[in-house]
Amino acid sequence: MTIKVMTIFGTRPEAIKMAPLVIGLNEADGIESILCVTAQHREMLDQVLNLFGLKPNHDLDLMAPGQDLFDITTRCLLGLREVFRTDRPDLVLVHGDTTTCFAAGLAAFYENIPVGHVEAGLRTGNLQAPFPEEANRSLVGRITNYHFAPTSLAKNNLLAENIKEETVWVTGNTVIDALLIVRDIVENYPDGHWVNQFGKPLFERISSTNRKLILITGHRRENFGQGFIDLCSAIRELAECHPEWDLVYPVHLNPNVQKPVYEILDGLKNVNLIEPLDYEPFVWMMNQSDLILTDSGGIQEEGPALGKPVLVMREVTERPEAVDAGTVLLVGTNREKIVTAVENVMGDKAKYIAMSRAHNPYGDGLAVERIVRAISSGFLPTNSEDQWTI
């Protein structure tokens, strides 16, 4: 018997984490794999599809200028109604906490199609942080049939919500599968490839053993406004106080990010504001960096896998495992706190080594194998040896 499995995603982070799973499903016996993208993010999504050689069976092409959460949700629901009624999958796989994830799960629920949630069970306990992601993942969890939790803590969050244990598999996070694949690819590229990518002056600064590199990302909706002003002010202070450091910031295209970043940071000699990066050069940049300063969710998982200390510019995180393991430090958006934390880590060799060598709690690169095995076996219970534990 063949199982028809439809994987749905729409943003670059989802695509990165789900691409290895789509490849695994394509290669699995007894599974007919169908890929549907909503294109909630168009260009950034296409970059990942091209990298992994994936061609969607369905493309809703939702991205439009000035779209908001109402637009994305309603257009996704209506578009998927037709897709589901045409293909009628046996299982729909969604990922994480995006609006695509929630809307796709809801659409599948309306059509009585079982839902599998990859990266299930992440919680902050605060519906406003992050917004709207905490609500998205919590709501889709209530209509999910099969929960693929990245860690035992995520599983426990689900059990605390009265999710039946036999519907939860602890798999590790598929982002580690993707990261290790791409890391091995970029390590074989010659220097000339990166000179062409970044230009010779920036490449030489990044590659210099006499300088330290801090990689920065920021895009969270809850940080818009004063939060971004404060974190940009902290970055400016760090750059001015430490001319021996280079700070590289691929700036998100959202105007709420672009405006404060360029107003506060543009013109500083050792702050490099660059266009958003494709996944390959971003993985290379992470691997070259000495420290990562971010408000991203996925980077909290990727940084530790590469041995990089990660400082998170958020007040709470749905990924406390890395905080507990000592690879991640929450610093919020307070200017003084960010500056002090970065200087403490960069200036304390013992602390830096401890953070960079701490155990990565998010996986071993075999999450896809575990998920595909669960689906292929008809979701039979697995023993503890078959699950990822930290």
Rank of each mutant, 00 (worst) to 15 (best):
K17N: 03
I34A: 04
E187T: 15
L291Y: 03
A129R: 13
G218Y: 07
I8S: 02
L366R: 11
F282M: 07
F148H: 02
M1I: 13
L311D: 03
V118K: 10
K259M: 06
E82S: 15
A325C: 09
R75E: 06
E161I: 07
M1D: 15
L49G: 05
N287M: 12
Q300K: 03
K351L: 14
I375S: 09
L179Y: 01
L380G: 11
Y249C: 05
A149N: 02
E222D: 10
M6C: 04
L247E: 05
G105T: 03
L51W: 10
V195E: 09
V261C: 08
E161F: 02
Y146A: 00
G347K: 09
P304R: 10
E27I: 10
R221W: 07
L213T: 02
Y362L: 05
E336H: 14
T171H: 01
R85C: 10
F224Q: 13
D278T: 12
L277N: 00
G192K: 15
T7G: 07
V271T: 04
N196P: 10
Q288E: 10
A341T: 14
G66K: 11
L180I: 13
L366Y: 13
L179R: 12
E321A: 01
T144Q: 04
P320K: 02
E111M: 08
G172K: 01
F84P: 03
R81N: 13
M286N: 12
L329F: 12
V251G: 01
P250D: 01
T144K: 00
P114V: 07
E244Y: 15
G267W: 12
N334L: 15
L311Q: 06
L153H: 14
